[in-house]
Amino acid sequence: MDQIASDALTIVYGIANLALISLGLAIIFGMMRVINLAHGEFLMLGGYTVVVATNNGVNLWIAMLILAPLVVGVIGVVVERLLIRWLYGRMIDTLLATWGLSLLFIGIVTSIFGASTTTTISPPLGVITIGAYTSSGYELFLIGVAIALMAGVYAVLKLTTLGLLARGTMQNAEMAAALGVSTSRIYMITFGLGAAVSGLAGGLLAPITGVLPTIGVVYIAKAFITVISGGQAILAGTASASVLLGGVNGIVAFITGPTIGEVALLLLAIVLLRLMPTGITGRFFRKSL
């Protein structure tokens, strides 16, 4: 019984982890129809923010929950203003430009901090025990954060004026532009928000994974698969794809080991795409957020 609870918790954590690393990407994709190839580097920058801040004596929680999203969010806005906005309507060029950005970030961080970092932060909150089994309290915390973050994004989309405008733009960018909604500003905020959420995720994961200039690679494959399988609805897409892919990954990995788990993730995603070329939310839950 305890074993089942502990294993289930591992799988749920896998799902939450997937949702956490994908949500920022999903926000940008849902709104702008563009996959941000610098997504992994946004996560990486979140991690570095936490490392630098704590090295300078900032409280770990403040660094993770406030500084990381703030810093990366600002970087996102700057990037959007300097680069992305020149490429509106040029989908492929936007993809390429974000890829250039990804290399640029890796290059800059490597130049400043070197190719590897020795600093590690140990995950706070210790362990909790379930009967005879132990589980990381921090992982439990991250599950909570993933849920809270989803709820937060839901609230922003559903309850605020910004959310209303964003939803309009999401449905039909041209229509929104014709109605006088400044899509340019919405895109700027979206990009900033997506970056901030990614920064938060990267900051929160830094204690578990450590930081490296190239750590983005570890995340992006999974994040891409999740967002593409999910389709364009930000929340429903991320949630449904995380549960499906994270669940399958968790179960397969549990049986055969992590390598095959990742392959299963990819194969499932490719088969899903053959059946639903526009993602899960392109077929189901069409009207959802």
Partner: peptide, 27 residues
């Protein structure tokens, strides 16, 4: 076969192919 017969869009195709090579890398 999967991507063309599923008629996935350019953006999806780009990202899926990249993902395939990343997975091969980690594998």
């Amino acid at each position: 076969y999967f991507v063309f017969y599923g008629r996935v869009s350019d953006v999806y195709l780009a990202v899926i192919t990249l993902t395939v090579s990343l997975i091969l890398y980690s594998l």
